[in-house]
């Protein structure tokens, strides 16, 4: 097990390095000229040259990459002489547009995204899995058809549409909830909740629709298994047959899907954050793309990739714990 984890961590590092190289190469061929973007109105070639020098863009690509990696592990210094400033470990780069280092930007935005993702996650698992189980147990009955019909509708709506509907009905038409901008939980728990509740619901609805279908199908498949018949033949109560033997096997594949979906969300809920004006990682990514803020894009891509790769490892380890047939080697 220990050796397996170490091997997986090494592989994970390899994947991140490969990814960073690809991102770096990709951005080097983009027609965006970072120096020109920050140069301003009275731009002269010498200013551009100075800016390029300051951020290291005049260096060969290999050197730029080396400095990027160095920044992550030992930090780096931008500029020279009096204008020089340090970017501390782990330095993911410096946004010349925002005059802020990328690490700080991510540190500010990631917690908001994480709260959005985790809250939505809890909600969608609770709702999706439980109604999926109900649908499976009531297969073919009106409960099943209603749930599956609703799930199909929820699944077909784009997430921004669900978000806009929520805003329209909850905040505007019936004005149940005013407009609230994000506030830290520690400043005001009530405000924090009011600002996040609609985004949570918006995130959860989409995924809950998907998870109810997934759960239903998994449960139906499991309840048709021979070992469920054995459980009944033993004389177990129906409650135990379904609640213990059925759920244990039926919900296992859902762990995989849930882990990866949560990780995907941690990389930024681009649309939901945009619609609800939540200053999270997704919004940072979108803003950076529209302003060609290459260092920030690199940083957010790396963070998102990190979560996905980490989730893969965690899910595999979890699976080995849940399913005794899985052997890690």
């Amino acid at each position: 097990m220990g050796a397996y984890i170490i091997r997986r961590l090494i592989a994970m590092a390899g994947m991140l390095v490969t990814l960073s190289v690809i991102v770096f190469l990709l951005f080097s061929v983009l027609p965006a000229d970072p120096a020109r973007l920050v140069c301003g109105k009275s731009c002269t070639p010498s200013i551009i040259k100075a800016i390029n020098h300051k951020f290291g863009y005049d260096q060969p690509l290999a050197v730029q990459y080396k400095e990027f990696v160095q920044g992550i592990f030992v930090g780096r210094t931008y500029g020279e002489g009096k204008a020089a400033f340090d970017c501390h470990v782990p330095c993911l780069g410096y946004s010349f547009l925002r005059n802020e280092d990328v690490t700080t930007l991510i540190k500010d935005t990631l917690p908001i995204t994480a709260q959005l993702a985790l809250g939505g996650f809890v909600l969608w698992i609770l709702v999706g899995v439980s109604i999926g189980i109900v649908a499976a147990l009531k297969r073919g009955k009106w409960q099943d058809r209603t749930i599956m019909g609703a799930a199909l509708v929820g699944y077909s709506f784009p997430s921004f549409f669900i978000a806009l509907l929520l805003i329209f009905f909850v905040q505007i038409k019936f004005a149940v909830l005013g407009f609230h901008s994000y506030t830290s939980f520690f400043d005001s728990p009530a405000e924090w909740f009011k600002a996040l509740v609609l985004p949570w619901i918006a995130v959860a609805m989409l995924y809950a629709a998907f998870y109810s279908r997934l759960t239903r199908n998994q449960m139906l498949e499991t309840l048709g298994e021979d070992y469920i018949r054995t459980a009944r033949a033993k004389g177990l109560r129906e409650r135990t047959v379904i609640g213990k033997h059925g759920l244990r096997a039926g919900l296992t594949p859902i762990v995989t899907a849930a882990g990866l979906d949560l990780a995907g969300l941690l990389g930024g809920a681009l649309i939901i954050e945009q619609v609800f004006a939540l200053p999270g990682l997704g919004r940072l990514s979108v803003d950076s793309v529209t302003t060609s803020d290459l260092p920030v894009i690199t940083g957010t891509v790396m963070v998102a990739a990190f979560f996905i790769i980490l989730a893969n490892l965690v899910v595999d380890l979890l699976y080995a714990v849940i399913d005794p047939r899985v052997r890690l080697a």
């Binding site: 021979d226 018949r229 054995t230 459980a231 033993k234 004389g235 129906e238 244990r248 399913d323 005794p324």
Partner: peptide, 25 residues
């Protein structure tokens, strides 16, 4: 009938691998 199953009448099945729960010892 449930209370009789496994007590007064019991059954063994064709395929013992699929008839035993894979996740329990």
């Amino acid at each position: 009938v449930r209370s009789l199953r496994g007590k007064r009448m019991a059954m063994i099945f064709q395929d013992p691998l699929s008839s035993l729960h894979p996740f329990y010892s």
